[in-house]
């Protein structure tokens, strides 16, 4: 029972991350794309947590949800916000 629950959780997180990744690629507003990318990373962090790798979770959450979006936002501020045709 527990195994089925764990696997269902994993599947849900993985599918959400796929949806977020697709939306991040499709989005023309780069700031929104960064937010989608952060959602995808948060799902990955949850997957690591369910797979019992708390050390990775502790480094993955600040780096992928905090620092990488911050770097990307800084970089977007230096260029254009909307992707052209």
């Amino acid at each position: 029972m527990l195994e089925i629950f764990t696997l269902t959780l994993l599947t849900l997180f993985a599918i959400t991350s796929v949806v977020a990744a697709y939306l991040a690629i499709r989005e023309r507003d780069l700031v929104k794309a960064v937010v989608y990318s952060a959602i995808q990373s948060a799902m990955y962090a949850l997957i690591y947590y369910v797979l019992m790798a708390p050390d990775i979770v502790l480094v993955y959450i600040p780096v992928s949800v905090g620092l990488i979006p911050a770097v990307l936002l800084f970089v977007i501020k230096k260029t254009e916000r909307y992707e052209g045709d």
Binding site: P54, D55, V57, L58, V59, P62, V63, G66, L67
Partner: peptide, 10 residues
């Protein structure tokens, strides 16, 4: 669980 790199990035 934790360590230097984790704490530094937090």
């Amino acid at each position: 669980p934790g360590g230097g790199f984790q704490a530094g990035s937090i």
